[in-house]
């Protein structure tokens, strides 16, 4: 009995210390990535290349998802709003949900699955095949050469993708609401424009997506860079990237939402 209690407590303590250790290493790694920023941003061609891999290639999934999320919001929103005779407010409902929440959050979740996993797997495989050690031996800093461009590629891509998601969502809602259901186009746009505020809604939404870009980018490069140099290590780094960045995005979203929209 005593033995079991000690075992359980030992496992718990070990898990907490392990988790805190990872958090600390991630923070130090973040500092290291930021420390080489000037070297990364000076060779912007590298960042451009990574933006193609993570950003440009995510456009299709973002655009299609945004369109469908917007259409579904319009159908469901109209169903509820028409009970109160307020279906003219559909534009407000859709635009606020997309710009404030769904645009940044769903984009970040999709990005973590589409691009974050790829970044982690790529860097993890470089670790497993000793490419990173080889670079270090040639006095090339892998953080500046490999990690930095991928991190900044994610940071720059995320707000652009989130903006596209929101716009396609509004377009999808317009297709369903105005074209199919027959809400007046004038009140759809005018109520939206009267309610959505540039600074309070649009800029805060974009700020959210920048923070998500930093979070997802950092988690992906950290997990890849610190992957165990085995096939299993690469696979677990990829899985951890998707799981941890999804949870981090949802948690950060809650924190930022209470801070931004509490009033």
């Amino acid at each position: 009995m005593q033995r079991i209690v000690i075992d359980v407590l030992g496992d718990l303590g070990g898990a907490v210390i392990d988790g805190l250790g990872r958090l600390g290493r991630a923070a130090l790694f973040f500092g290291r990535v930021l420390g080489v920023s000037h070297r990364v941003l000076r060779r912007f061609g590298q960042v451009t290349r990574e933006m193609r891999a993570s950003g440009v290639r995510s456009v299709l999934i973002i655009v299609v998802s945004g369109l469908f999320v917007g259409m579904v919001l319009a159908v469901q929103g109209h169903d509820v709003l028409q009970r109160f005779g307020a279906s003219d407010s559909l534009g407000v409902l859709v635009a606020l949900s997309l710009v404030r929440e769904l645009g940044p959050v769903v984009t970040a979740l999709l990005f973590a699955g589409r691009a974050g996993s790829a970044i982690a797997a790529e860097i993890g495989l470089m670790r497993a095949t000793d490419q990173l050690s080889a670079m270090e031996m040639m006095a090339v800093d892998p953080v500046a050469r490999i990690v930095g461009p991928r991190f900044y590629g994610a940071v720059f891509s995320m707000p652009l993708l989130a903006a596209m998601f929101s716009v396609l969502g509004v377009f999808g809602a317009w297709l369903i609401g105005v074209r199919l259901i027959g809400i007046d186009a004038g009140s759809f746009w005018s109520q939206m424009q009267a309610t959505v505020d540039f600074r309070h809604d649009v800029l805060n939404g974009l700020l959210k997506s920048v923070v998500f870009g930093v979070a997802v980018g950092l988690i992906a490069v950290f997990e890849g860079f610190h992957a165990a140099p085995t096939a299993g290590g690469v696979s677990s780094a990829t899985t951890r990237t998707v799981v941890i960045s999804s949870l981090a995005v949802l948690f950060l979203d809650f924190v930022m939402t209470t801070w931004m929209f509490r009033g």
Binding site: V99, L160, A163, S166, V167, V170, M192, V196, F198, V202
Partner: peptide, 12 residues
Amino acid sequence: AAVFLALKVGNL
């Protein structure tokens, strides 16, 4: 897209 959000949706 950001400009569209600012001008058309947010009516900046």
